[in-house]
Design a protein around this nucleic acid. Structure first.
Length: 555
RNA sequence: AGACCCAUGGUGUAAUUGGCAACACAUCAGAUUUUGGUUCUGUCGUUCAAGGUUCGAGUCCUUGUGGGUCUACCA
């Protein structure tokens, strides 16, 4: 085997080992097997990245397989969404999307084979009876009274199950293993159930459907998947997975489990995500506050940042809780170099430059991205009256390290002049209604001969030239990093909804913002990274806060 | 309680497989800066416990302790 890459984690160590042993002629084939009954979230992203990156790294392939063995919950429109999310994340699967339901015929044949080997039987027990037979973690189970039916009878019954002769729930096919096995999953697990329901792909062709344990592993084998990577909670299933490989004499895919990724403030439970949508806490599955891929995409997270995040957080078998700061670090890292800058004033207050000629305007030039001169520059209009950020003004500076607007302070207007604050006007309640300042004509940006050094620089937008924009200022959806970990206190995750997770602002943006389109991400100078929302119209630009800027200001 | 899995700074992950515990994020401090951003420098702090093997243990053994998973005709 030439040039086997170096392993970066324990899964890759197994793979390298298999490669060195010449297993499967050096072929590597992984798969991502979502159930098409919901939307993909950050946890799925981790699994996608692991599977596809391993495929890439070892010159292998990765299948996309819909694990659609339950006709009651699965829908076609989820399939499309899943495909789109994976493509957006930047991955291309091998061939067409495949489906566990493609294999229903083969799976049925395998079931017959198991029956013929005397390793499966048709059970007439009810759900409750089967649960009772199961025993307990420290009590061995008991055999079903139907366990000793003859092979011929089992075969006949199973064929008639398929033919639709029996009602839902009246019979199941069970593996015949060991009702005293310490692993409860091997206590004669149910393999097939009767469901007279229409399947999203096979329609009414079938009324019996295999369960996970008799579909997933077998699909792996049919596709000759070499390494079947899944999360830790499937550890116990591996014993059954391997038992079936041996009993069925099928291709021996190797299951390896890794710890799923948890991220502070993000929820990855389908049930809970659904509740947030249904109760109107968020606007939908793609709400930017959701940990879904659709939500994070709408929020403006670059796919590259998500991929980096998933790769850098590593692969182990330990429970882990990733800090939100690290996710945002990955987002900012990509955006800092990739996004252009604009100016917008989120909470505007008027500033009048008293010694600037009335009616006069100037056009200044400013860099689109100081990190990357090749991205060029753009023009911004300047006038006597400008909007500035209300929080950039203090009636009196609170300490010597305050560099922004306050009486007597000199401050640079980004890419324009340095101004000197003369005073302000306020209403009866003490709210500032206007700031007055003078400017230094010789401090013009680019050829500043004033000799004045302003410690602070602020952004601004010319009054009259400013664009009215809507800014959706998103914050964390929860007030607690692990909202579902408080059951011992009698609280559930809904008790930790952050009431301030969204503030809608009416802001003033520079004219060039009109040229942006839905999905564009850029930095609003000094404020953060923002992405144009799909709700934007030609009349009104709508921006989502993607991620704030870091700040070392302690005021 | 039984089986299985896991345990390294605040968080996450490394450690040439028994040889000076490191990297990233976070923290704090400083430098640079026409973004209090970026960049740069420095700072803080780590092997769950007790025994054992060994010249030498994060790594191997034993016993604890702590955490997780499993008793769906869901996946």
């Amino acid at each position: 085997m030439a040039n086997i890459p170096e392993a970066d984690n324990f899964i890759e160590e197994f793979i390298v080992e298999d490669l060195q042993n010449g297993k499967h002629d050096g072929r590597i084939h992984t798969r991502f097997p979502p159930e098409p009954n919901g939307y993909l979230h950050i946890g799925h992203a981790k699994a996608i990245v692991i599977n596809f990156e391993i495929g890439k790294k070892f010159g292998g392939r990765t299948n996309l397989r819909m694990d659609d063995t339950n006709p009651t919950t699965e829908e076609t429109h989820f399939v499309t969404n899943i495909e789109n999310d994976i493509k957006w994340l930047g991955y291309e699967w091998h061939g067409d999307t495949v489906y566990a339901s493609d294999y229903f015929g083969e799976l049925y044949a395998l079931a017959l084979k198991l029956i013929d080997k005397g390793l499966a039987f048709v059970d007439d027990s009810t759900v409750e009876e089967i649960a009772e037979q199961k025993g307990d973690i420290d009590e061995p189970g008991t055999n079903s009274p139907f366990r000793d039916r003859s092979i011929a009878e089992n075969r006949d019954l199973f064929e008639r199950m398929k033919a639709g002769e029996f009602a839902d729930g009246s019979k199941v096919l069970r593996a015949k293993i060991d009702m005293a096995h310490p692993n409860l999953l091997l206590r004669d697990p149910v393999l097939y159930r009767i469901k007279h329901e229409t399947h999203h792909r096979t329609g009414d062709d079938w009324c019996i459907y295999p369960l996970y344990d008799f579909a997933h592993g077998q699909s792996d084998s049919i596709e000759k998947i070499t390494h079947s990577l899944c999360s830790l909670e499937f550890r116990h299933h591996r014993d059954l997975y391997n038992w079936l490989i041996e009993a069925l004499e099928i291709f021996p895919s190797r299951q390896i489990e890794f710890a799923r990724m948890n991220v502070d403030y993000l929820i990855t439970s389908k049930r809970r995500l659904k509740k947030l949508v249904e109760e109107g806490v968020v606007t939908g599955w793609d709400d930017p506050r959701m940990g879904t891929l659709a939500g994070m995409r709408r929020k403006g997270y670059p796919a590259e940042a998500l991929r980096n995040f998933c790769m850098r957080t590593g692969v182990t078998k330990r429970d882990n809780q990733q800090e939100f700061d690290f996710l945002e670090h990955c987002v900012r890292e990509v955006l800092n170099t990739s996004s252009d800058r604009f100016m917008a004033v989120l909470n505007p207050v008027k500033l009048v430059i008293t010694n600037y000629p009335e009616g006069e305007t100037e056009i200044f030039t400013t860099d689109n991205n100081p990190e990357d001169p090749s991205r060029g520059s753009r023009e911004i209009p300047f006038s006597r009256e400008i909007w500035v950020e209300r929080e950039d003004f203090r009636k009196e500076p609170q300490n010597r390290k305050y560099f922004r607007l306050a009486p007597g302070k000199d401050v640079r207007l980004k890419s324009a002049y340095i101004i000197h604050v003369e005073g302000h006007e306020e209403d009866a309640d003490g709210n500032v209604t206007q700031i007055n300042a003078s400017y230094y004509p010789e401090s013009r940006s680019g050829n500043d001969t004033s000799g004045i050094k302003a410690k602070g620089t602020i952004h601004w937008v010319a009054v009259g030239e400013g664009l009215d924009i809507e800014v959706r200022q998103y914050d964390k959806l929860f007030s607690d990093p692990t909202p579902m970990d408080h059951e011992d206190e009698g609280k559930d995750f809904m008790d930790f909804i952050n009431p301030e997770s969204l503030k809608v602002l009416s802001a003033k943006g520079e004219p060039a913002l009109a040229t942006t389109k839905a999905g564009d991400t850029f930095q609003l100078l000094r404020k953060g990274y923002y992405t144009v929302d799909e709700d934007s119209t030609s009349d009104k630009v709508v921006l989502n806060l993607t991620c704030g800027l870091k700040s070392s200001w302690k005021g």
